[in-house]
Computed example of a mutant assay.
Amino acid sequence: MAILITGGAGFIGSHTCVELLDAGYELVVVDNFSNSNPGVLKRIREISGKEFVFYGADLNRTGQLEEVFLTHPIEAVIHFAGLKAVGESVREPLHYYKNNVSGTLNLLALMEKHGVKSLVFSSSATVYGNPECVPISEKSRLHAANPYGRTKLMVERILQDVHAADREWSIALLRYFNPIGAHPSGLIGEDPNGAAPANLMPYISRVAAGKLDELEVFGNDYPTADGTGIRDYIHIVDLARGHLKALEKVFTSTGVEAYNLGTGTGCSVLELVASFEKASGVRIPYRFVDRRPGDAAICYADPSKAQSELGWSAARGIDEMCRDGWKWQTLNPNGYRTE
Score class of each variant (00 low, 15 high):
S34V: 08
G189H: 09
V127N: 00
S280C: 01
A315Y: 08
A196E: 15
G189I: 11
L200M: 14
L142E: 01
M154D: 12
D213P: 10
Y55I: 10
Y336Q: 07
P223K: 09
K84Q: 10
A301W: 08
Q329M: 15
Y300P: 06
L331A: 11
R241G: 08
E257N: 12
R167K: 15
P147Y: 02
T228D: 07
I12Q: 04
D213Y: 07
S124A: 10
Y259K: 03
G311Y: 11
I298G: 02
C133T: 13
Y203F: 14
Y203L: 14
A258Q: 05
L107E: 07
I234R: 02
A301G: 12
G255S: 13
N220Y: 01
V18Q: 02
A296D: 09
S118P: 00
T151N: 04
I158H: 04
I3S: 05
V28H: 01
R61G: 00
G8K: 07
L70A: 14
G7S: 11
N106Q: 13
G186D: 12
G264K: 06
A306F: 04
V68H: 07
R292A: 10
D302V: 13
G294R: 12
C133H: 08
V28L: 02
N35I: 00
P93F: 03
L70W: 04
E271I: 01
T16Y: 05
S89L: 07
V68M: 08
S253G: 10
P179R: 02
V120A: 06
D232A: 10
E112A: 15
G194S: 10
C133E: 14
F11I: 08
G264P: 03
A144P: 15
I47V: 12
L108A: 03
Y222D: 00
A208Q: 09
T6S: 14
T104K: 04
H243G: 12
I12P: 05
K42Q: 10
D232M: 10
N60Y: 03
S102F: 13
L65Y: 08
L272W: 01
G129I: 03
A9C: 13
N199L: 14
